[in-house]
Simulated assay, not measured.
Amino acid sequence: MTLDDLGPRICIMGPSNSGKSTLADAISRARGLRTVHLDQLSHLPHTDWLSRSSEEFKALHDAELVGSSWVIEGNYSALLPQRLERATGFILLDVPTPVSLYRYLRRCWVKGVRLGALEGSRDSVKWSMIRHIIGATRSNRARYKRMFGDISLPKVGLTSTKALADFYRVNGLKRSCPYRHY
């Protein structure tokens, strides 16, 4: 399945630091779609990842869905039914946990423009995030895999860094990040 098969409204999900933001940006630039980073809607700008109220987040989330074309990256499974109702395609990323952990540490230590970053905030190494990547990712992976099987939209599962790189190549996508992702 190619990007053309996924249509003009694409959902991207996957574990933390799996490359969702970078892929969403590449698709957005290649296809002229609006990019929506759910972390930016869920958290208050200029804070250390302080969450908005669930009502405010839901209102911002649902307002983004009315557009005719978009690529939305992020999980927030409680609001997934609304996204899937409007989506024309779905991508699930599932890179190995060590890759996600490496990407997290790199984004905290290598300062530069990070796609999907929270405005006015700096990424810093947090033990809670490391524990989340190492621990929660395993149960989330199983849940995402079951969910992926149930989705009837055109969909792509990218379960390795090679599969992700091949998807970029086959679809003529280019990363715009200032540092290389592994």
Rank of each mutant, 00 (worst) to 15 (best):
L3H: 06
L3D: 05
L3S: 08
D4C: 06
G7A: 02
G7M: 01
G7V: 03
R9V: 10
I10P: 03
C11L: 12
S16M: 06
S16A: 11
N17V: 06
A24L: 05
D25G: 11
D25Q: 13
S28Q: 06
A30W: 06
L33K: 09
R34F: 07
H37L: 04
D39W: 01
L41S: 02
T47L: 02
D48Y: 02
L50V: 15
S51M: 12
S53Q: 02
F57Y: 04
H61M: 14
D62H: 15
V66R: 15
G67F: 14
W70F: 06
W70R: 04
L80C: 13
L80N: 10
R83Y: 12
L84C: 05
R86Q: 09
T88V: 03
L93V: 12
D94C: 10
P96R: 07
V99G: 13
S100P: 02
Y102N: 13
R103K: 01
R106F: 04
R107N: 10
R107C: 09
K111L: 03
V113Q: 09
L115N: 02
A117Q: 07
L118A: 04
S121Y: 01
S124P: 02
K126A: 06
R131H: 12
R131K: 09
I134G: 05
T137A: 03
T137L: 00
A142Y: 03
K145R: 12
K145P: 01
R146T: 13
G157C: 14
L158D: 02
S160Y: 05
L164E: 00
L164K: 04
F167Y: 09
R169W: 07
N171G: 04
L173E: 01
S176K: 15
